[in-house]
Design a protein around this nucleic acid. Structure first.
Lengths: 112, 112
DNA sequence: TCAATACTTAACCAAATGGTTGAATATCTA
DNA sequence: TAGATATTCAACCATTTGGTTAAGTATTGA
C-alpha cells in the first residue's frame, strides 16, 4: 500500500538529505538559475550537479524551463508543503515540552 | 567545511526519507514503544527494525531507554525543529506565489 | 541452572547514491 | 558550415542503504 504521497515524501526528504542539493534549493529560491550557475559554487563536475538537479526536479522541489540550450531552474515549492506538514505534526509535541520548560523558568507568558 | 548542523540535517532528512521510519516516528509519538512493539506492524525482521531505530536514534529523532532487556523508545523531537525550520524558510516563497495568483484573480490592493 | 525472551551484531546481498570521465546532443555564433 | 557552448547521457566505481539469516549478549523467570 505504498501511496503516491508516501513516495513523494520519500523523494522530497531524500532530496533534502544532501548538503549540495539544499544549497541548490537556496540558489534557485533567490532567483532563476542555469545549470552552469548552479555548478559554479561547487567543487564537482557539471554532470554531478546535473544529477542533483534532476533529483530535485523529480521530487518536484525544482522546476526547469528550457530555452534553446540553456536550462533555467526555479524553486517549485509546492512539494515542500507536504514535507513541512509531515514534520509539523510533531511541532506540538516539542512545543509542549518547551512550554513546560518555559513555564518552569518564566511563569505567565503569551505566544503565537 | 561541513558544519555539524549540516550533518545533522543530512541525518534527519535521510532518516525521514523512508516510509517505515516515518511510521515508527508516528508510533513512538503516540506513546513509548519497545522494539518488539515497533517490529510487530512491519513485514520485516526485528533486526531490520532495530537498524531503523538506530538510524532514527542517531538522527536524534528518537531516544532509547534501556530497562533490563527491554528497550523503550520515545520521540525526541528537538532535532525535528531544525528540519522544520529549514523547510519553513520557503513557506513565504510559495505563500507569495499563491498570493500573487490570488491577486490575479481578485485585484483589490497593490503591493511591492 | 536452564531455557525462553528481547535485543544487537556480524556477515552477506542487491540496489541505490554520489561521484567520475568521456561521448553525445542540441543550440548559438562567427 | 565549423566550432564553441550548455547540457545530458552512459559507463563505471566506491560507498551506503535496506533487507536477510544466524549467532551473540544480557536478562528474566521457572
Amino acid at each position: 500500500m505504498h501511496h503516491d504521497s508516501e513516495e513523494a515524501l520519500d523523494r522530497v526528504f531524500m532530496a533534502l538529505a544532501d548538503k549540495t542539493r539544499r544549497q541548490i534549493v537556496h540558489l534557485v529560491a533567490e532567483k532563476e538559475r542555469t545549470i552552469s550557475e548552479l555548478s559554479a559554487p561547487f567543487d564537482m563536475s557539471m554532470a554531478a550537479v546535473s544529477k542533483h538537479v534532476k533529483i530535485l526536479e523529480k521530487a518536484k522541489i525544482l522546476q526547469r524551463r528550457v530555452d534553446g540550450r540553456i536550462h533555467y531552474c526555479t524553486l517549485a515549492p509546492e512539494q515542500l508543503a507536504p514535507a513541512l506538514d509531515w514534520v509539523s505534526i510533531y511541532r506540538n509535541f516539542w512545543q509542549q515540552r518547551l512550554d513546560t520548560l518555559d513555564d518552569l523558568i518564566t511563569p505567565a507568558n503569551d505566544n503565537t
